[in-house]
Computed example of a mutant assay.
Amino acid sequence: MQFEMAPFASRPETARGRLFPEAESAFRTCFQRDRDRIIHSSAFRRLKHKTQVFLEHEGDYYRTRLTHSIEVAQVARTICGALGLNSELTEAVALAHDLGHTPFGHTGEDSLDALMQPYGGFDHNAQAIRIVTSLERHYADWDGLNLTWDCLEGIAKHNGPVAAPVPYALAEYDARHDLELGTHASAEAQVAALSDDIAYNHHDIHDGLRAGLFEVEELLGLPIVGACFREVDARYPALDPARRQHEALRRFFGVLVEDVISTSRATAGEIAAESAFDVRHAGRPLVRFSPALWADLKVIRAFLFERMYRAPSVVRMRARASLIVEGLFEGYLATPELLPEEWHDALSDALGEQLETARIVSDYLSGMTDRFATQEYMRLIGPLPE
Rank of each mutant, 00 (worst) to 15 (best):
Q190E: 09
R244H: 15
W142K: 12
R176M: 13
D178K: 12
D196W: 01
E218K: 05
D174K: 01
H158G: 03
T148R: 04
C151K: 07
N201R: 09
K157C: 14
W149P: 03
P241T: 11
G182A: 15
L147A: 12
A238C: 08
A189C: 11
A185T: 06
G144Q: 01
R230P: 10
T148P: 09
D204E: 10
G212P: 09
Q190V: 07
L219R: 03
A128I: 14
R250C: 13
L179Y: 08
P161R: 13
D204M: 13
L145N: 01
N146M: 08
I224Y: 03
P165W: 14
G254P: 08
A164N: 08
N125W: 03
G144E: 04
Q245F: 00
A227K: 14
R210C: 06
G212L: 09
A189T: 07
R250M: 12
V232S: 04
N201P: 01
E172T: 15
N125M: 08
Q245G: 11
G160E: 07
G144I: 01
H158C: 01
D178G: 11
G182I: 12
A211L: 12
P161K: 13
R130A: 08
H177F: 15
G208D: 08
E172W: 15
L147I: 10
E136R: 04
L194V: 15
D240V: 13
V162Y: 00
G212Q: 11
E218I: 08
V191I: 08
Y139I: 05
A211Q: 09
R250E: 14
P237Y: 03
H206Y: 12
L145H: 05
L145Y: 05
V191F: 02
R243G: 13
T133Y: 02
V162T: 06
L181D: 07
G154A: 13
H158E: 00
W149Q: 05
F214M: 09
H246W: 10
I205Q: 00
V162D: 01
E247W: 03
L220Y: 04
H184T: 03
D174C: 07
Q245I: 07
R235E: 09
D150E: 14
L135S: 05
D178Q: 15
W142V: 13
E180C: 10
Y139A: 09
A242H: 14
H124A: 05
I205E: 01
A187F: 09
I224E: 09
G254M: 13
L135Q: 04
V232E: 06
